[in-house]
Amino acid sequence: MGLIENRMEKNVITTTVDSVFNWARKSSLWPMTFGLACCAIEMMATGASRFDMDRFGAGIFRPSPRQSDLIIIAGTVTLKMAEVIQRLYDQMPDPKWVISMGACSSAGGPFDTYATLQGVDKVIPVDVYIPGCPPRPEALLYGLMRLQDKIDEMTIAKKAS
């Protein structure tokens, strides 16, 4: 990929390659098991049979960051945990995406205290923010679909500077 990326202007080859790669990436996003607090329970419910997340290809939760390409930060991020999140994010291989699920990881939520990080985007870059406390499983699926739309916009063609 590194050899052909960013070399050509947008043409029929790049768009075809893009559509194949993006379809492959968005249809098999493998999240990491990273539930912190209450949102984790709704994430588990999304993975269960009523709101099946597996039909989006994202049902396999990998325990190791080295095997996953999506991390769903579900729950409150405390300062003690932020250190760990930085390390886990660095261990994930590219391309990687981050979904911040819930109010706590997006902006601190109701916990504006001495021990809470006000938003996980202070330590790692976030692609999709899902509000809610906790967000309904349908909201998480909507966030996942928006992430899939974002992945669709990726391209190997030269980007206009």
Binding site: L36, K80, M81, A115
Partner: peptide, 11 residues
């Protein structure tokens, strides 16, 4: 432990 200490008692 303490990775989820949010200070609920102080709140």
């Amino acid at each position: 432990i303490g990775y989820l200490h949010r200070g609920v008692e102080k709140i």
